[in-house]
Amino acid sequence: MASFDSRALLSLWLLGAQALANGVVDSSSVDIAATARAFAHEAPAAIGESDRFAPGFQAEADVSGDLGGTAYKLRLFGNWDAQDEERRYADIRQASLHWRRDGLSLGLGVGTFFWGVSETLNIVNVLNQSDLRQAVDGKDKLGQSFASVGLRLGSGELSLYYLPTFREREFPQRPSFGLPVSDSARFETSAKGGDIALRGLFYVGDLEAGLGYFNGIRRAPLLIRDSPVDTELKPFYIETENLLLDALYLVGDTILKLEAKTGRELDQGFFAANLGIEYPVYALPDAVQDLSLIAEYLMDDRDEQAETLGQNDLFVGLKTTFGDIGSSQFRGVISYDFESGANYADLSLKHRLNDWFRIETRALLFLNAGPGDTALYPVRDEDFIELKLHYSF
């Protein structure tokens, strides 16, 4: 199992409590949520019995501060599900130290990184393993061990990362891929860890651009069967080498976005890109603080070996902040596959009740996914609606 054990988490909790007692904490927060997830369909018979309704709870704690000129960050996450044992786990999302002097910085520990600018699928966000136990789209990430060296430039920053360990993807009962996923994975090479990444982030006028390089094990495995009669899928982790680009350009209030990467996998070259636009609309200034229309197109010439839920897809949607001083946020996106006609919708609503409580709900719906869509067809019965009641302090 890739999750961290309870003793490691307890040690970090004690470290955070000691830091708090010693007065070296700049900020801290705890978020506890009661959760309820309801699936639209029964679980596939192949994975066994699983109730369509699953209550549970989540907890997350953040602490950050300074220890003798060295900044530290600690973020712990835990989840408990009444139906799915694989969704009862804890993870260290962040436990890192950062030292900076003049333009040079050093980092060490466990971190969760985000690279990219797209609203839908971030194809250049390659460092962390996806946490499928939260949702099949993989937007939530697991902590990744790292060591980094950074150099601040006049109009940006250059960073080098060494990733000493590799975390396999965890597959819960639900979301399911139609068949059980084996705990025994295959790797293209015997090496597990020691990946290298390089990223430069630059600002020039209204342009923000990131250039990156990654060489190591691809985080998204291929799910294969050794023979047609196998009753389970086996994760196959391949080596990948990527050149990465993400860019954001402002044209007035309109935002143009691009994520692209090229490289080699399984001795073949590939290219993938996500091109998008975000257009702000301010139709009701008294009730709606901001309203933006979203359109993005994703292409990936790896076909069945693509890493995401789409490979020739158009995404359209909107996001808005409304209510009393922005107390509510809504985001809705629907996709359309130009090859298979399949699509899925991702809808979320967040509402702040007061300074301590907020409600969050999300619906992930898979529509018209036929056998011709190799990405969406395996998860066609994993539609769910989730409700969370958060208490933060």
Rank of each mutant, 00 (worst) to 15 (best):
E382T: 10
L160G: 14
L198M: 06
S176V: 11
Q58W: 03
F214K: 12
Y203D: 05
I224N: 11
L15H: 05
L256D: 00
F77I: 01
P280H: 08
F113H: 11
V149L: 14
D226N: 02
G178D: 10
V229H: 05
A273S: 11
A59S: 02
R358S: 15
V110T: 15
Y377V: 07
A36E: 10
F322W: 03
S148E: 12
D301C: 08
Y89Q: 10
F366T: 06
E168A: 06
D66R: 08
F214C: 03
A17I: 01
A82V: 14
R52P: 10
Y161T: 00
L20Q: 08
G68Q: 12
I294W: 14
Q129K: 04
V149A: 10
L256C: 03
N215I: 01
L244F: 05
T262S: 14
G310I: 06
F338A: 00
L349T: 09
E360A: 14
E296G: 01
F322E: 00
R358A: 13
T308V: 09
G341E: 11
R218M: 11
N274C: 09
L158R: 00
K141S: 07
W80Y: 12
D346A: 11
G138W: 11
P175L: 11
V136C: 05
P175S: 01
L104I: 06
D303H: 03
G194E: 15
E278Q: 07
G372L: 05
D206L: 14
G193T: 06
A54C: 01
Y249A: 12
L314N: 06
L9F: 15
T35P: 13
T361W: 14
Q289W: 03
S176M: 07
L266P: 01
A38R: 12
L245S: 13
S50T: 08
L244Y: 02
